[in-house]
Each structure stands twice: as C-alpha cells, then as structure tokens.
Write a protein that binds this DNA or RNA. Structure first.
Lengths: 161, 161
DNA sequence: TATGAAAAGATAATCCC
DNA sequence: GGGATTATCTTTTCATA
C-alpha cells in the first residue's frame, strides 16, 4: 500500500502543488478547504515524509534554443560492471540528456535528449554519445511536436474493472 | 539567436532555480554574486519574458505507487483532422500519460506513461489506450530503472568544433 | 490530538540612490 | 546594481475543542 497515509486533502494539496508551487499556503488552504495553519503543517509533512522531493522552475526550452526532443535507444556492448558504471556516470554529465532509462529487450538504454535541431543532433551523436564507453548502436526517435507535457504524477493507480 | 538577452548572471539564476526553486532571493543573490533587489528584479523579468514558465513540486512517483515508466509508440489510422484532434484531446485527459510527442517514421505518436507494474499496463492498454480513436498499433518500450532524471534544460546549445 | 487565531520572524516587493 | 524600508508571507506559539 504505497500511500495509505495520504487522505483526500493531502491529495488535493499535491494536485495543486504539482501544477503551481508558487501559491501561498493561505491560497492553497482556501483551495483545499482548510485553514492556513493545518495546511502549512500538511505541506511540511509531505516534504518530511518524502512525497515532495523538490521544488523547481520549469523553463521554456524553445526560448533557450532547444526546439526538439529526441529519444535515443542505445545498445551497449557486454561490459564489466565497472565499464557500465562509467557509461551511466558519463550520462550524468551530458546536460542535453534529461532522462536515461535501462530497458528490456533488444536495446539497453533509452535516453531523452533535447536538441536545437537534427543537424546539431547528428554532431552530438558522433561528438558525445558515441564517445561513451561501450556504445555499439544508436537508434533515434525524432519527435516533431510536443502534444502533452506534464511533471504531475497521478496520486493513485487506477484499478480497472 | 534564441537567448541573446540572457547574460551570465541570468544563466546562473536559471541554473539554480531549475535545481531548487525554494531558495530565497537573498540566498540566490548570494550564489550568483549580486544583491537581493537586483536579483529579485531579474527573477521577475525571467518570469515576465517567459523564460520561467512555472514553478512546481516534483513528487516521489514510487511513493504514489508508480514504479515504472513505459514508452508507447502508437500507430494511428489515417484520420481526418477532426479525428486526430479527438485523439490528442483524449491524451490530455489520461493522467498516466505524462508526455506525448508526434514522431517521424513508422509510428505516429510516442507516449511517456507511468505505471505501477506491467500487469497494470496491460490492462491500461486495452482499457484506455486502445479506446482512443484511430489507434491501430502499440509498441511498448518497458523500462527497468531510471538512471537519470532531470527537468533542467541546458542554457545554451553547445557548438561542436 | 488537531485546530485556528495571533504573534514573531523571515522574505518578498518597493523605493530611492 | 545596491541599500534601506515596507508589505506580505511563513513559521511558531498558545489557547481551545
């Protein structure tokens, strides 16, 4: 039971804060139907218990020159544990790689990358990605447009009847 | 020139705020080497000019019961513009779909989905995804673990020599 | 044990230089 | 951009239920 500790009000708080964390506790309190003081304590608790991991600003990537997302499926050579470490440590230091997952199946890693354009990405592959240890093959999924983008996680897994 | 208007201090501010937006303007000011009031004005300007789009909390998805990410490549039938609209509008209302991209090539859309487990995801496919108009085929990339995860966009596209 | 009102402390926002 | 001031919000305290 992942979140038996969260009641309906906690969930409302998380819903609002996942959309807009710049609300004052008084504003938030009003939205969720309690008063300021208990609302503040709940927000504290959500931090302390680790439900809220961090508070960040989301920036306009296109204004910064990154017009597209590209997903790269990477095949990695059979490597020692040490070499794999080096690969994943290397990923951490490439700022254009926003996310990295290990995956099941034919390929070994999936990278979400921001890029200014395809030409830049081609250079990025040879200049940066291919230089990582063990990279054997890269298959890219080039995106054209972003139809949905949120960081808000649902508060409870649905059950299907 | 996407961000000719941003100087080195603006970039430092964005770097810090993309990591931790709970810093006070005084703390932030000290980190970037200016005093509180010009720092506050810069942050305001970054909001006003749209560099900062929003401020949110990031929650622990695993504590909420979503242990894995799955990427679904969806093939969509040749549809009228109206039907495509319906598809993409439908996506907006599925909270487990965090991101949706249109893509080039064999498949038409790429969805980033959070799921409690693979069994849940199988039900989700038939109960939810397949019910969207025009969905012809779904290929899923199931992830095992998350090796990197950030919302921080680089502040300037690199150039390769 | 939880709540709400209110005081105390810290920070955001404004003003003037 | 900086320093000082005011307005606002956060955080703590305390009385109450």
């Amino acid at each position: 039971m992942a979140n038996a500790e969260l009641d309906a009000i906690d969930m409302k708080i998380l819903t609002h804060m996942q959309r807009d964390a710049s609300l004052t506790t008084a504003e938030l309190a009003e939205k969720v139907g309690i008063s300021q003081s208990p609302c503040w304590r709940r927000v504290q608790r959500l931090h302390d218990e680790g439900y809220i991991k961090s508070q960040v600003v989301l920036v306009d990537r296109q204004k910064l020159g990154f017009d597209m997302h590209i997903f790269a499926q990477v095949k990695i050579a059979r490597l020692s544990e040490e070499e794999r470490e080096t690969f994943f440590r290397g990923i951490q230091n490439i700022p254009e790689v926003l996310e990295c997952y290990t995956v099941f199946g034919e390929m070994d890693a999936l990278l979400k990358i921001v890029a200014p354009d395809v030409k830049w990405y081609q250079e990025f592959i040879f200049n940066t990605l291919m230089k990582l240890p063990g990279v054997e093959d890269i298959r890219s999924i080039v995106t054209l447009s972003e139809a949905k983008s949120t960081t808000a996680i649902p508060l409870k897994p649905r059950t299907f009847q």
